[in-house]
Design a protein around this nucleic acid. Sequence first.
DNA 1: CATTTAATTAGGAATTATTCCTAATAAGGA
DNA 2: TCCTTATTAGGAATAATTCCTAATTAAATG
Lengths: 141, 141
Amino acid sequence: MQQLEELVTSLRKEGFRITPQRIAIVEYLLKTEEHPSADHIHKTIQKKYPMVSLSTVYKTLDLLKEKKLVSEIEVEGEARFDAHTDEHINLVCMNCGKIEDVDENSLKEIQNRAAKKSKYLIVKSSFEMFGYCTNCKSKFN
Amino acid sequence: MQQLEELVTSLRKEGFRITPQRIAIVEYLLKTEEHPSADHIHKTIQKKYPMVSLSTVYKTLDLLKEKKLVSEIEVEGEARFDAHTDEHINLVCMNCGKIEDVDENSLKEIQNRAAKKSKYLIVKSSFEMFGYCTNCKSKFN
DNA sequence: CATTTAATTAGGAATTATTCCTAATAAGGA
DNA sequence: TCCTTATTAGGAATAATTCCTAATTAAATG
Ligand SMILES: [Mn+2]
Ligand SMILES: [Mn+2]
Ligand SMILES: [Zn+2]
Ligand SMILES: [Zn+2]
């Protein structure tokens, strides 16, 4: 996800209104690496902007997904959002829920092979690995 | 997932009871390739065994997951179940929901690299690609 | 700056997949 | 056949997400 300024400009150019709610959400997503849930985004930005509703968070996330500015992954029945939209692997800690990124440049190739083999038209992909992070793994062996 | 007979034997040996409900669910999962949801499993086996409740389907699926006889993937807020438990890629059609398997032997390597790079202890992984199947893709281009 | 209007928001209700609860049932051992 | 206890049915509870609508407000216009 790009810088806030360019992003605001490009949204405005497309006819979208720039509201404090949208700025707060985008600003937060730009700087965090924690792959927050909608609820977590809501709670976090409420500290600074108390007048943001959860349904606005959801609607803004829909917009950002459509503009391909964030990607969504589903973890244990909950959507988590990621401003890192390049193809990468998300490592999910099954204990604390922490998510870490790992870039992997062979994903594109695999995607091409799968498309060729299956004849599907592939649009996006989602690769998650589940396990225990460095903090948690000592408790599980 | 193995054959029904061995599976029943091994479950019984572990002290689990063999009920008609469990047999119906396992039998169905063994022969289908459609990655059904809990609800779909329920509706399907009800035709043959009308006295199976949805909560039993859920509980049986929990058991089978724990025994690693089925794996679970989440697609659009719904869990889908797969008796193919080797590492593979699931191709999900975003129009009709069909899911197809693609085996990919480089996944193990990638998993090892990710584990090494991140120091996570990796337990399982889930690789989905989303797009349009051969039936649906003509409608989307 | 004041006015206009259509996009956006807040907040609660509705929806839906899943989990939880508990009395009734039945698998399997004796 | 009887007994014990795991399992089931079925409905209630839960929780994430979507839907609905009146009120608000961004930003275009003059
Ligand atoms: Mn990520
Ligand atoms: Mn599969
Ligand atoms: Zn952790
Ligand atoms: Zn399709």
